[in-house]
């Protein structure tokens, strides 16, 4: 196996405090974190940053998360990147819509603690790199 460079996680979240919290937690696990405060900025930055995984908040101003998700899934470069949707609502509808639009997982911010979030990220990236290597 090749020596692993630091994995890059793109965090698309408009709330400062929350974004900071996830970033701290991720960085504590040696992830490179880039934050975008909304969908438009995210789409601009993703091609440059080339993340290995994207954490995508659903409810955002200007462009909602689902639109961003669909767009990303449409692009060749970002079609296979693991994307987790973050939501504050525990409504079932968000989950179905999100998963149908192509998200890999669905995280309820107020129920899933940062530790778990990072755990999920790790699992997904491991799986992805395994697939990649094959």
């Amino acid at each position: 196996m090749r020596p692993q460079a630091h994995k890059r996680v793109m965090l698309v979240e408009d709330d400062e405090t929350l974004a900071e919290m996830y970033a701290i937690r991720l960085k504590a696990e040696d992830f490179d974190v880039m934050r975008a405060e909304n969908g438009k900025v995210a789409l601009e930055d993703i091609p440059r940053f080339k993340p290995d995984l994207i954490l995508l908040d659903i409810m955002m101003p200007e462009m909602n998360g689902i639109e961003v998700l669909k767009y990303l899934r449409h692009q060749k470069e970002t079609r296979t990147i693991p994307i987790f949707i973050l939501t504050a609502l525990s409504q079932g509808r968000d989950r179905t819509v999100g998963l149908e639009a192509g998200a890999d997982d669905f995280i309820i911010k107020s129920e899933t603690m940062p530790k778990e979030v990072v755990q999920k990220v790790k699992v997904a990236l491991d799986a992805a790199s395994v697939a990649h290597n094959f």
Binding site: T17, L18, R25, K109, M113
Partner: peptide
Amino acid sequence: PLAAIQGYLSM
């Protein structure tokens, strides 16, 4: 904010 509260507290 609740997620932030709980998240930080959990950490």
